[in-house]
Amino acid sequence: MGLAEDLAPRLEAAVRRHIGAPGEIGDLRRLTGGATKATWSFTATIGAEKLPLVLQLASLRPALAPGDPLAELPRVVGAEDAAMMTAAAAAGVPAPPVRAVLAPEDGLGGGCIMDFVAGETIARRILREPQFAPLRQSFAVQCGGILGRLHRLTPTALPFLRPFGAAEQVAHYCRVYDALDHPQPAIELGLRWALDHLPRGHATAVVHGDFRLGNLICGGDAIRAVIDWELAALGDPVQDLGWLCVKTWRFGGPLPVGGMARREALLAAYREAGGAAIDVTHLRFWEAFGSVKWAIMCLMKGREHRRTGRSTVEQMAIGRRMEEPLFDFLQLLAGED
């Protein structure tokens, strides 16, 4: 189902069923279409009100051979994604309010309907445009607070989350890299470094898994919603803070935390929100391994057409980005920021 015309009548029926009448749909527009999900914005008339909403559908994944390591990554989609966002919101993390979880009789597959959260996700604008200056000032404090609260969530309330700690994660990306059979000495070095420097006995918490600019809907002075929870898992909480500081996710900004702030400000705000004290070496592990991981993801994108037989301009471009994080990783090894 790729066309808005097929989608609209089913969506309208789902809105009527779950949210209210008359449920008339307008302005249906595709926002993103990723490998694991697609999102659409639309308005629905409920009573006399016109609500701005978002539909998130778990899309069908390309068929992968059984045992393919690419199929192993824990993915939180559909009703689980909705439960994750609801639990996060209850813990004080800004997440899109979930209005309805789709049911089989909706005929739309897995997914949910959320309130539309207005704001900016494009990093380049958040980092440079004047209206985001107040946000840039408090960005590290806000991120520290959000992650501190998220990491205190009780995991037992989210039974579908899979354990994905440091050792499991490094092992996973080793298998993904091996399956691609495209030997890269710099990646090999990165993986061996990660195995040698694994944080042992780390705490386990509910982690977002992809906490960075691009997945934060921002207003002029506040982060309004954390989106894209599909990589949520039970992991090392420091992972979320390190990933936010990976050079790729600084988008050219001069400072480590999202390109906007110093690590100290993030760590202090994290503690204040109930997070643990974090050792800088531990944080650096996740920054360095984050670069290696992104390099493997680029390699995966660059080889995707060989596996799926389909190629896009964007895929090819991401494939050509592999050396960016590898260069950064080597800089980190050499002691540079």
Partner: peptide, 9 residues
């Protein structure tokens, strides 16, 4: 090794 990898990337 490190020099080579830096040069190559």
């Amino acid at each position: 090794l490190l020099d080579h990898l830096r040069q190559t990337t």
